[in-house]
Nucleic acid binder design. Structure first.
Lengths: 228, 228
DNA sequence: AATTGTGAAATTGTTCACAGCA
DNA sequence: TGCTGTGAACAATTTCACAATT
């Protein structure tokens, strides 16, 4: 293949590849900050505890970004990944639920998630409505439909109690929302064209529990080498 | 195989099976609360958006729990899963970082995670040390080693800034901790026998972003998340 | 000499399809 | 009849290994 970096329009890309792209992106930011200009699949693999072949395969799905004998140009690789992930733009986000989780997310956001702009914070509780969090004011969830439209919300974070989550999700979907990040411990039922991710801390804790109980054999991603 | 429910001691169990067990567990609690006494693989599969064969395969890894023609006894299945996951006991947990994320976790915990008991909350900031959160008092992180030992901490949650996370993790590991749930946006480097899970909200948001940009063909999530 | 890009092989995970049992 | 348990078929993902390129 002619080596001028070419982006390929690919058919099916696996979820795991996309998740790893996200990891690479974060690590590339660190590498870029350190001043390093190129990075090899071996280097990146070592940092992520993956194999170099995996790293190359992940990138090759989208085309040829690297230079044989040299590696990948850090800055360019990073911006290509940003483009693939769709984070070379901003997204308007609304958070539903101004309780502990909702407000903790706001704090988390401050120094992270540059491209995901929180444009709305909603709650049902009259005692919370009107409260300020940074430059956001808690809005009555009754105004969900009008505010989602007005603020051009594209992604919704659900941080309300389990009981209320399905109703909020339904109303968001009816307002045209197609991407939901759910923190409520409940299986939301949504149309197939809505992308839903459920953040599930129980699952992670239970996985830790499982692996402690079955401590003899721990699950390992062995770092792998192409050549020493 | 003789049909008396028998637990099998299995060799390699996939991570995805364990994650799904966690999902089944949560759903079984809902089913149990509804009074339903048996559940079929078809029923469970429908609720989790999986295939019935997948559900049966997951259970069969650990033995035969069901009754042909009838399904699985809800209560018994639930407690078997609890045993497999190691949540038929309690675990002593410490949280490092009493900032927004750490304290949000505490609130989240209240009505969840019954078996994971928070026995310590630590921070470095003198203004936070001594503050009460429910029946926990923020302890100086200087006492990490002594408190981990005294309270019999087995699982650690890291909710400190990225800068400080590796140091905390190292000290925990030196104190004998073998299971860490990390909320700091950094790749921790730890010995192979320490089980580490990193909760990564960026990854989920970026996945949503990706699937909106590539909206033509909707993404199917993996176990752990939403769809098969 | 170093390192990518990629078919082919190996491995892992999922679904099928049906025997066997309540 | 209905539904589990499971080997065999199939599908997806990862790793290998090496030609191609700088």
């Amino acid at each position: 293949m002619k080596a001028r970096a070419r982006e390929r329009t690919t058919g099916r890309v696996s979820e795991s590849t996309i998740k790893r792209l996200s990891l690479y992106y974060r690590t590339l930011a660190v590498i870029e900050a350190s001043g390093q200009k190129t990075v090899s699949s071996r280097d990146l693999a070592f940092r992520e505890r993956l194999t170099p072949a995996q790293v190359r395969k992940d990138f090759s799905v989208f085309g040829s970004f690297g230079t044989r004998g040299l590696g990948y140009p850090v800055g360019e690789l990073k911006s290509r990944i940003a483009r693939i992930l769709g984070i070379d733009r901003t997204w308007n986000v609304a958070v539903f639920g101004a309780g502990k989780i909702g407000t903790a997310l706001l704090a988390y956001w401050e120094f992270q998630h540059q491209g995901f702009l929180i444009k709305g914070l909603f709650d049902r509780d009259p005692r919370k409505i009107g409260a300020r969090h940074g430059d956001l004011v808690v809005t009555d969830v009754a105004q969900l439909e009008s505010e989602v439209a007005r603020a051009g919300i594209e992604i919704v974070v659900i941080a309300v109690p389990a009981m209320a989550a399905q109703e909020i999700a339904d109303r968001c979907v009816r307002s045209g929302i197609k991407a939901i990040l759910n923190f409520a411990p409940v299986n939301l039922v949504l149309p197939d064209d809505v992308c839903l991710r459920t953040e599930n801390m129980s699952m992670e804790l239970e996985y830790l529990s499982y692996s402690r109980v079955n401590a003899g054999r721990a699950p390992r991603a062995v770092p792998g080498n192409d050549l020493p």
